[in-house]
Amino acid sequence: MTDSLPLVPQGAAFFPVETPGETRKYAFLLVPGFTLLAFSSAVEPLRIANQLSQQPLYQWRLLSEGGAAVASSSGISVCTDGPLAALPRDTRLFVCSGNPAAAAAAEPVVALVRAHARFGGTVGGICTGAVALAKAGLLDRASFTLHWENQPAFCEDFPELTPTPAMFEIAAKVMTCGGGAASTDMMISLIAQDHGAEFAAMVSEMCLRKVMVGVDAAQRSALSVLIRSRNPGLIAMVARMKAHLEDPVPLAEIVTASGYSRRHVERMFLSVLGETPGDFYRGLRLDHARNLLSTTEMTLIEVAVACGFSTVAHFSRSFRARFGVAPTKFNRTLSAPAPQPR
């Protein structure tokens, strides 16, 4: 496989880079169902950097397992430059994945990632691409992340690994992001390392992103925003519920720890969340169960236990009441899901 010439498009805006150094190389490995938004959000900052500087700062190639076009989660296929093959050590190799996340765990994909890392190359995961890195045994000592939707299933498959809630994580030889717009944030951060903050800020503005997001930014909104309340007591109670989905804490214990009366807690939940504390807590556990049924191969009893239900019968009744379908039928309908873009 030969390299194509770096793309340097024309544009009206210009920002000179006085000492560009050698062209930095990227390879994006597309797996079936990869998220088009996440992939394009990673490539476009590199294109913009070349366009702004009018220099070949970056070069990229696309790979797929068989060298053919790959269908994204939106059904749009993207042509690649060739099949999987050994890459120069100075190439940053990113696995671009989506739903199903298991596509990133295909053995040829994992083998290439493992080999590239073994010979000193930098590897990365976009969206659920971290699954390939985990299978390759490359995340044991690195901070990493993947899309929040897929983190519960990931933790079930790799219980010894803990992803962070960050938009992206950059280490010396391992880089990951949650996908979506986080791909842009990660690339802008890398461009800042390569060519300075001022140039990266201009790339960010060309992406119509006025603020460069830092590595500590979480993927999801603050809990206070999600539940439309700034009441610290309510936020603390909900946070405790979310931290104990598998081993539910008795409501009496949560109420006592809050310092409020039972009646006051119930009024807070009803006025802000529209549900009693018990119904809200059960809903959190059932939403977690729905996620696990959608994204893992766990059995019904395993999902029930992972969500704090003592019996499958109780879990099934509760699930049907919330979602209008039995968990067995729900799981069957998602055994070959139509991937959803993000």
Rank of each mutant, 00 (worst) to 15 (best):
A171F: 00
A172P: 00
P9N: 15
R230A: 13
P100E: 09
L62I: 09
R342P: 00
C177Q: 08
C96S: 11
G196T: 13
T333E: 15
G67N: 10
F34Y: 12
L146H: 08
E65L: 09
E253A: 15
L273I: 08
S64L: 10
M1D: 01
S64V: 13
A115C: 01
T162Y: 07
G82E: 07
L161H: 02
L62R: 13
A239Q: 13
L161D: 00
E266P: 00
A69G: 11
C307R: 07
V213E: 06
K242T: 11
R342Y: 06
L30E: 04
Q55M: 03
A86L: 08
Q193W: 00
A69F: 05
A85N: 11
S271G: 02
F28M: 08
A38N: 01
I235P: 09
G66F: 01
R285W: 07
P83G: 14
S258L: 09
A86G: 01
N50H: 12
L292A: 07
I170P: 04
A42P: 01
G33V: 07
T311S: 13
L87I: 06
M241Y: 04
P100M: 10
L245H: 09
G137A: 09
I76K: 05
L208K: 12
H264L: 15
L52S: 11
A68K: 08
A111P: 00
C307K: 08
R220H: 04
L84A: 10
Y281A: 15
E149R: 10
E156P: 01
Q54P: 01
G179C: 04
L63V: 13
S4W: 01
L270M: 14
I254A: 03
E44M: 14
G196R: 08
L293Y: 15
T122N: 08
A153F: 05
P339S: 08
E302L: 03
V303G: 10
T184H: 03
A111K: 10
M187E: 06
R114F: 01
G283Q: 10
M167C: 13
G324N: 09
A117S: 15
R61H: 04
N331M: 15
A252T: 08
G120Q: 06
G67E: 06
E65F: 00
T184E: 03
A338C: 09
L334F: 14
D185N: 14
M241E: 06
I191V: 10
R267Q: 15
T299N: 12
K135W: 04
E169M: 13
